Amino acid sequence: MRILVHTEGAERWCEALRQRLNDESLEIFVDDGERLGDILVVWAPPAELFERHVGHDVKVILNLGAGVDSLLQNPALPNDVPVIKLRDAGMASHMLDYVRYGLLHFRRDFDRYAGQQRAGEWAPHRVVRAAHYPVIVLGLGAIGAQIAEGLAADGYPVHGFSRSAHTLAGVTCHHEQGDEGRTLQEVLRDKSLGLKAVINLLPNTEATRDVLNAEVFAALAEDAVLINPGRGSSVVEADLVAALDAGTLRGALLDVFQHEPLAADSPLWQQSRVIITPHAAAPTPMSGAADQLVDNIQRVQRGETLTGVSREHGY
């Protein structure tokens, strides 16, 4: 069986797989633009890779990340091959660190103190405890659920929103489906929740694109903040800039954007209320990811049927 790897730093991934599998019946190699693979291990591959495999019996496509939007949008992606994504693989702990920093930055007024430092102003602010800082996590998949439960354990009042119903320890879960469901906009407009921070971990799907827009920003409390380490497609960036300029939103910590790298002329770079990081919130840890890849490769070897991501739902 042949395992083709297409990604930046592909040889490192090949070596990690060789060490774990130690199976002479497997040929593990970096995509050279010519050879075919029975299992494709990829990140953002070109259409040509799939076009080359037309008529070849590809068993599974293993995606080197939790986000599959770019893969599902590939026009040459075969319809009959399951796509398996990484589920956490250690990314959740990195993501939780990132979100914790964002919440602490705004809850303890470090954004305001930075402005005061530039102005030479000495003015202590009242400390707001986590218990008085309600937050909402949008998207309760494998990573989002861990983030929500981790923040609840930190003492924050945590709300969660997802398409289908979830039950998580210490988290008030809201969902869209069913008779008692509410839309995301309805939940975010609910003043009784007292939300101080919106943490976006929604997947990139037709249903989630542009959902964080002017209407939502206007409905949030004036001192609310946005933390987005999830998907840039969820945010209407022009509306976000307008809300920040108007003071409708207190600030934002942004790791992902509609187009990456973020354009040099984007007004977000010059927005004093924003912290920008370069899609670095939760890099994929090779060790945990390679372990997941090996598990799926061995399942293929055993002839097991793999259930991939939903093409309909996009995750």
Rank of each mutant, 00 (worst) to 15 (best):
H132G: 09
V198I: 12
T284S: 10
Q258F: 07
H94I: 00
Q301Y: 01
D32M: 01
P203I: 03
D69K: 10
S287K: 08
V68P: 07
A142F: 00
A289Y: 10
I227E: 04
Q19I: 10
E149R: 07
A221F: 04
L151E: 10
L77N: 10
S266W: 08
L240I: 01
S272M: 01
L26C: 12
H56V: 12
R273H: 11
E24S: 13
V42H: 02
E176R: 15
L86E: 11
A92I: 03
D239H: 05
C14Y: 11
S93A: 15
I28T: 08
H56F: 13
L202F: 05
S233P: 00
P46G: 02
Y156E: 04
G115R: 15
H279N: 13
G9A: 04
L62D: 11
D31L: 09
L26K: 02
G178C: 11
P124N: 08
A130C: 09
L268P: 06
A289E: 03
A281L: 14
S25G: 14
R52S: 15
A148E: 05
L240K: 01
V99L: 10
E176I: 01
V42M: 02
A153V: 09
D223A: 03
M286L: 15
D80E: 15
G230D: 05
P229M: 03
R311Q: 14
K59R: 15
D111S: 10
